[in-house]
Design a protein around this nucleic acid. Structure first.
Lengths: 198, 198
DNA sequence: ATATCAAACTTGACACTGTCAATATCACAT
DNA sequence: ATGTGATATTGACAGTGTCAAGTTTGATAT
């Protein structure tokens, strides 16, 4: 029996190996350094092997982004676990958001750097809802009559996402870099209190 | 006389022509399509000519980003001109922010997509303060004792920047795309009122 | 056991990219 | 007029993504 593709062929799990190789390369060489041929070499296969598992470079990047969104979601869940109240949970998720972006900046840029048209062929995989579900749930307790869920979620997501990208790029918000990273983060996230309290 | 480099050589103003060619290419072919050789061809020079005016592709991108930040600043200024009060001015700037990102998405991505290490050689040119000065001034009236300027500015910038990037990428905030663009924007920007009023 | 066959992988080629070295050309000061 | 330095061209090189063709592999049917 065992009709599962456990080790169907030569390499076996080349698809997963290529995604992991891509994440490793992103970590060491940055987004610019991510290359089909380097991924193939790192996985120990020839340069054209990835074509049998992904639709070119865009397809590989889409799969990496999808896998990265899973890690991203787990990081946010872990950072918000054990929160005392709803607000602490929301802030914990934002903390996980920032920490993930800081720990894996190139993967983060890949995940959120897609253009509209690049997105089409991997629309199923690159589903933003995947990672944002946890953020959405954390926003739910604060929904009010005059603040519907999509608006509140957009406000919170925009704040944390904008802060993560601007602060981590290093080119902007330079006055904030005088403060310790954690302190700056907490002061900016104080805007959440004002957004959320009626 | 005339020691100004009005038309010093073969092409004359190749540097400016290359920057303009780059902006045109960004508009038509996207960030991925921006190429040293295409810029050179569009400016009518050979493929290696740009090397005499920019430090490689990174240098050209830095110069384009610098020029884009000037356009960006002007767009924000124009959008906020004639505002009735301080809050309307701040919202006008945010409107200009979003409109610019929507009108020139590839240029916007280039301006804000730089990594830390790519930034070094063009640090003088790619000065984020350049464009953010107008946003900073619009924030000034709302500074309070318990809300120092750098924190308030970071909150406002993060909100509008995060919204612009997330909304325009098309992969996220999908529920918001059901609303008309202007209406969605205004509802999200309502968070500014809460940030700013004491 | 043997033949068959499709999937997985390799090899080789192509056009395109950024970058460099060598060369040519022009403007201008002397 | 003569040289000098900035400006531009040409040619080459290593990498890149992608495609076409061939080769290996392993499962399945007979």
């Amino acid at each position: 029996m065992n009709h599962f593709p456990a080790k169907p062929h030569h390499h076996g799990a080349l698809r997963a190996a290529l995604i992991q190789a891509g994440i490793d390369i992103l970590q060491s060489d940055g987004l610019q350094g991510l290359t089909l041929r380097k991924c193939a070499a790192r996985a120990g296969v020839s340069h054209a092997a990835p074509a049998h598992h992904f639709d070119g470079l865009v397809g590989l990047k889409g799969a990496i982004a999808h896998h990265g969104l899973l890690l991203f979601r787990d990081a946010m869940l872990a950072a918000s676990a054990g929160a005392a109240d709803d607000l602490a949970q929301l802030k914990g998720i934002c903390q996980g958001y920032l920490d993930f972006a800081a720990a894996q900046p190139a993967l983060f840029r890949l995940m959120f750097g897609f253009e509209k048209h690049e997105h089409r062929k991997v629309s199923v995989e690159l589903d933003g809802d995947l990672a944002y579900e946890v953020l959405r749930e954390a926003c739910a307790p604060f929904v009010r009559d005059d603040l519907p869920a999509p608006i509140l979620e957009a406000q919170v997501w925009s704040l944390i996402h904008g802060y993560a990208t601007l602060y981590l790029s290093g080119n902007f918000l330079r006055e904030l870099h005088a403060l310790p990273q954690q302190q700056a983060f907490e002061q900016v996230m104080a805007a959440l209190d004002r957004m959320v309290t009626r």
